[in-house]
Simulated scan of single mutants.
Amino acid sequence: MTRPPFDPFTNEDIAVVSAQLGRPARNVVGIAARCICGAPTVVATAPRLADGTPFPTLYYLCHPAATAAISQLEATQVMNEYNQLLSDDEGVRAAYRAAHESFLADRAVLGDVPEVAGISSGGMPERVKCLHALAAHSLAAGPGVNPIGDLALARCTWTPAVCECMDYSAADSVTE
Rank of each mutant, 00 (worst) to 15 (best):
S120V: 09
S120T: 11
V113D: 01
P143Q: 12
A135N: 11
G123L: 01
I119P: 02
P147C: 08
D106N: 12
V109A: 14
V116I: 15
G142F: 11
K129D: 15
V145G: 04
S120W: 06
S121I: 04
S120D: 05
K129P: 09
P147M: 00
R107A: 15
M124C: 01
G149H: 04
M124W: 02
V116N: 09
S121Y: 05
A117M: 04
L104I: 15
P143N: 11
N146Q: 09
A117F: 01
A108G: 02
G118Y: 05
E115N: 07
A136D: 13
L131K: 09
R107S: 12
A105S: 08
E126V: 12
R107H: 12
P114Y: 10
K129N: 13
C130D: 14
D106R: 00
I119C: 03
G122F: 00
E115P: 10
G144S: 05
V113R: 00
G144P: 10
V109Q: 11
L134N: 08
G142S: 08
G144H: 03
K129W: 14
V109K: 10
A135H: 07
N146M: 07
H137W: 02
V145H: 02
V116Y: 04
P114A: 13
A140M: 03
L139S: 00
S121F: 12
D106K: 02
H132V: 07
G123E: 06
C130F: 08
L131A: 06
A140I: 05
G142E: 11
N146L: 08
V128P: 06
N146T: 05
S120E: 11
I148K: 03
G118Q: 05
C130P: 07
H132R: 03
G142W: 04
D150P: 13
G123T: 03
P114H: 10
V128H: 11
A105E: 12
G144F: 08
L104Q: 09
V128Q: 12
P147I: 07
I119M: 14
A136H: 06
P143S: 15
P147R: 07
E126N: 15
A140K: 00
A133W: 04
A108Y: 01
A135G: 08
P114R: 06
G118R: 05
D112A: 13
A108P: 04
G118F: 04
A136Y: 14
M124F: 02
